Computed example of a mutant assay.
Amino acid sequence: MQYRTLGKTGFSVSEISLGTWQVGGKWGEPFNPATANHILNAAVDAGINFIDTADVYGDGESEKAVGQLVRQHPGQRIYVATKCGRRLQPHTAEAYQPAALRGFVEDSLRNMGLETIDLIQLHCPPTEVYYRPEIFELFDQLKQEGKIQHLGVSVEKVEEGLKALEYPNVTTIQVIFNMFRQRPAELLFQEAQRRDVGLIVRVPLASGLLTGKFTPQTQFAPDDHRNFNRAGAAFDKGETFAGVDYETGLAAVEELKQLFPGQPNLAPLALRWVLAFPEVSCVIPGASRPEQLTSNLAAEALPPFTPAQLAAVRAVYDQRIRPLVHQLW
C-alpha cells in the first residue's frame, strides 16, 4: 500500500481507502454487521488506514461498525471521516443551522464511541450553504472543544468546492471524479493543491459502471439507487452512474475495454487512473462483499498509466461523455 498526505491535515493516508456507503449491505439490501466487520478488518489488514462513513449510512449502523473497528485495533492509527447534514428533513439550505449540525456531530461521536472525529465533512449541502460563514465557524468551536480534529466538505459541484476553499478551516474536499467525470481535474484540483487542501475521490467506479461487468440486461433491485435515481428522483443524479446515461455509459465502457484488452474487470484500472493525478490524496471505493475489496486493492499492483493511455481515456471521455455531463457538475 502506498500512502499520501491528506492536505493540511498532515494525515498520511492509504491512497486506496474505503468508503462505507454500502459496506455490510449492497445497495438495496439491509446492513449486515458481521459482513461489515469482516470487510473493515480485511481493509485494515491490507494497509487501509482511512475509513469514510456518514451518519445516514445504514441509519447510523455504518458509524457504529467503524467505531468498533477502531476499538479492535487499539495500537493502530485508523483515520475516521464521517459526514453530517443529510439527516435534515427537508434537506434545504434553511435547515442548515449551527445547533442542528452540532447535534449531528455529537450523535456521531456517540454512535462511534469515540472522543473526537478525525475529519467531519458537510454532506453535500445545498449550494447556498457554502455562502454562509456561520456554518463554517461552528466547526472552529467544535475543534476547540476537542470534538473534531478537522473540517472537510463533500461536494456535488466544482463551484461548491471552489467556494469551500475560501474558508481557511476547510482541510479536505470530497468530490466525484472518475473516467466519466473529469471536470474536477481542471481548476478545482489546481486550486486545492495551491491551498494544501486534501482531495478525497468518491464514486471512482461510477456506481459500478466502470467495472465493465454491466450489460443492457443487468437488473437492479427496485430499492437500488441505480434503478430509481437515474434521473435524480431521490438525490443528485450525479451520484448514480456519475450522472451518465446508462446506455451511453455502456457504449463508452466498451471502448475502454478495447483500450485494455484481456481485462475482465476494469475496476482496478479505473482506480489506477484516478491515482494518476498527484493532487488526489486518496480514493474511497466501496465494497459490499470481501471480493470487491480484493478487486479494489488490485489497483496497487498495476503499473502507472502511460501518457498515451491517459490520452486514450481522455478521448473516450471527450467524444462520448463530455458533451452530456461536463458543465453540469
Rank of each mutant, 00 (worst) to 15 (best):
G262S: 05
Q97G: 07
A231D: 08
F214V: 09
K163M: 15
G85A: 11
F228A: 09
E94P: 06
P222R: 15
P98I: 09
L187C: 01
V274S: 10
K83E: 07
R71Y: 02
F228Y: 15
G28W: 09
Q68F: 01
F31Q: 13
N265E: 08
N37T: 14
W329A: 13
P304R: 14
D224E: 15
M112L: 07
V274G: 04
E247Q: 14
G113Y: 03
R230Q: 14
A308P: 01
G238A: 13
Q263G: 00
G47S: 05
L310I: 10
A308W: 02
G152A: 13
G286W: 04
T116I: 04
Q121C: 12
R202Q: 10
E61I: 02
G146N: 02
F277G: 01
K83N: 10
A100Y: 14
G60N: 11
A270W: 06
T240N: 08
D224P: 14
Y131S: 06
F50E: 00
E300D: 09
L293C: 07
H91R: 12
A267I: 02
Q76L: 07
D52R: 03
A206K: 01
L250R: 04
Y246T: 00
E279A: 15
A276M: 06
P285Y: 09
V13N: 02
P303V: 10
E254G: 14
E279K: 02
L114P: 02
A164G: 14
D236L: 01
G19K: 04
L18E: 06
V203I: 13
T306Q: 03
T82S: 15
G232K: 07
Q309Y: 09
K8D: 06
L138C: 01
Q190K: 13
E115V: 00
A46H: 02
L88I: 15
R102C: 14
E61K: 15
L205K: 03
D223R: 15
R86A: 12
L199F: 05
F136R: 05
P204T: 05
Q68I: 00
Q319H: 14
I39R: 10
T127A: 12
F177N: 09
Q121G: 09
V105R: 06
V158R: 12
G24D: 11
A234M: 11
V23Q: 08
R202M: 11
L310F: 01
A231T: 09
I148M: 00
T306A: 02
V201G: 11
P98R: 08
Q149L: 03
L293G: 06
L266A: 02
E279Q: 14
F241S: 06
V70N: 01
A95D: 10
C124P: 00
V70M: 07
L187R: 12
I39Q: 08
A298T: 10
V66I: 03
F180P: 05
P90G: 12
P323I: 10
G146S: 00
Q219M: 14
L199K: 03
L101E: 08
R102P: 13
N37Y: 10
G232R: 08
D245W: 00
